[in-house]
Amino acid sequence: MKRKQDELDLDEMVARYRPIVGFRVKRAFGPANPDWEDIVNEILADVIVKIRNGEFEGRSTIGTFIYTIASRRIVDYIRLKTKHLRYAPEPPPLPDPQELAELGENAERLARAIDKLKPRFKEVLYLYYFQELSREEVARRLGLTPRRVSERVNYDHKLLRKLLQQEDFFQLSGSRPTKVRKTENDE
């Protein structure tokens, strides 16, 4: 019975942490690396084995425990890959199917939402995220105060978050749509 309970807890743990570990691994490897999914599975399998062996003693959170295992596995993988990369097979040619599939329909919906923003809000996104300027630099470029830049960026976030949550974008539960306050974009 206890064993059954453990299985259920582990299932829940895997369901919760798979996307988080996946994000971390893809961030380290780059989205075009085809190995990321295998590494995620290896990490989660390793976590399960360690928990069953009693190696998780509760001295840290389970999140930190998994983070530590994931980080070590990522470093091991990259160390091995760096050693052999010269002779490794090339990744598939662009467009990378995984990345496009991931962007796919959701990205189009989000892109349409971005298109609906007024130009002054799109400008801020362009300078802030594409040109990677700081808020102060964006403010100087546009002749605004940094606070106004922050307001525009935050408005973009809230509006887009509302869209994502309404459409169950990432299938996350337990969060309600954020109310977007009326701002200068609604004028």
């Binding site: 962007l103 990205a107 989000l110 995220y129 887009l160």
Partner: peptide
């Protein structure tokens, strides 16, 4: 983490 995923997608679209 939720914010991170949202923002990551936004940045990837802006960059693309």
């Amino acid at each position: 983490f939720q914010r991170l995923r949202e923002r990551d997608l936004l940045i990837r679209i802006v960059k693309s």
